[in-house]
């Protein structure tokens, strides 16, 4: 029955219906939200988030008590991390409150939370060595701000960061040409993993895990 009833797709269909309902009644909900949800759960997103969870899990030990996601969008990374067995608190921080409302509709695991805020501004509040911090959308974040929080971070904190060289998308303000450029832009003291993947033969996605 897996072909007919994968839960995530039923959740997405229900969410699309939810967006339709709200878009007819509330000016904060427009029809682009449909596209935004579909984009956030497309094949490339699944592949890249799954890749991050698989590699990150190799470094997660019992000492880590929480995982914070900066720019959680609709929470896909958190769903995949929870599904992989991570049963501690996972907190998505997303600036756009509508994204968080949508993300809550898609939630299955009880250990996932959503917070309307700027993950960069909030960083000092969760800057502890026993936290995991993930940002799979570094291309959307000002490099200076990203660099600043990495320099401030407590030594034990585990970070997983992704970016890309997909310059054509105009919401991408911090693309990197190569994996080497991405690694160099991150003032991490220890690189545990660095890798890249080609997406749709159009651009490369880079990932760095480190402390």
């Amino acid at each position: 029955m897996e072909y007919l009833t994968p839960l995530i797709y039923r959740k997405i269909l229900n969410t699309i219906s939810y967006i339709y309902y709200h878009s007819a009644r509330d000016p904060d909900w427009d029809l682009f939200r449909f596209k935004d949800v579909l984009d956030s759960f497309n094949e490339a997103q699944f592949t890249n988030k799954t890749w991050a969870v698989e590699e990150l899990n190799k470094f997660i030990t019992d000492e880590y008590e929480e995982c914070y996601i900066i720019g959680g969008w609709h929470g896909l990374f958190s769903h995949i991390l929870a599904e992989s067995g991570f049963n501690k608190r996972i907190i998505n921080i997303e600036l756009d409150p509508v994204c968080n409302i949508i993300a809550k509709q898609l939630k299955i695991h009880e250990n996932i939370r959503f917070k309307d805020d700027d993950g960069i501004d909030l960083f000092p509040k969760f800057n502890h060595g026993n936290k995991i911090v993930v940002c799979t959308a570094c291309e959307h974040i000002d490099n200076e701000e990203l660099e600043f929080i990495i320099r401030q971070k407590e030594p034990g904190m585990l970070m997983c960061l992704q970016s890309n060289n997909y310059y054509e998308v105009t919401s991408h303000i911090n693309c990197k040409d190569t994996l080497e450029d991405f690694v160099e832009s991150l003032p991490l003291k220890q690189i545990l993993y660095a890798g890249e993947r080609r997406n749709k033969n159009k651009y490369d996605r880079f990932m760095v895990i480190g402390k």
């Binding site: 427009d30 682009f32 935004d36 984009d39 600036l95 756009d96 509508v98 959307h140 105009t170 919401s171």
Partner: peptide, 12 residues
């Protein structure tokens, strides 16, 4: 108010 969303939603 929502730069990232506007730049995703509109091409220009």
């Amino acid at each position: 108010k929502n730069i990232d969303y506007h730049t995703r939603k509109y091409k220009g």
